[in-house]
């Protein structure tokens, strides 16, 4: 079994690691890769940060239903009969 993995494989491992889907050998491969590859290390750090922001940032510019749209919507609802 090879210890060295490519950057493409490393990114794949980083994603799987998020869901704890790596075996012990794969974890060693990834750990080894991140130790020697600054680009993937950077990717891993930024990935964590982006996920966190993705989850916690709320859209401040959410569009709203206009008054007319609401009236129309109510109309559609009440005229739906099963």
């Amino acid at each position: 079994m090879k210890l060295r993995i490519s950057c493409k494989e490393a990114v794949d491992y980083i994603n799987k690691q998020e869901e704890k889907k790596l075996g012990i050998w794969q974890r060693i491969q990834l750990w080894n890769h991140l130790f020697i590859c600054i680009l993937c290390k950077r990717f891993a750090i930024q990935n964590k940060m982006l996920i966190k922001l993705f989850r916690t940032t709320n859209d401040t510019s959410t569009p709203e239903f206009s008054k007319e749209e609401k009236i129309k919507m109510i109309d559609v609802i009440v005229t739906t009969e099963d």
């Binding site: 709320n58 859209d59 959410t62 709203e64 609401k70 109510i74 609802i77």
Partner: peptide
């Protein structure tokens, strides 16, 4: 009841959907 639903929940549901 329909207008109650729309007024109370439509904007929250829209926010949920749009994200």
């Amino acid at each position: 009841l329909a207008s109650e639903w729309v007024n109370a929940y439509s904007s929250q549901l829209l926010g949920f959907a749009i994200s």
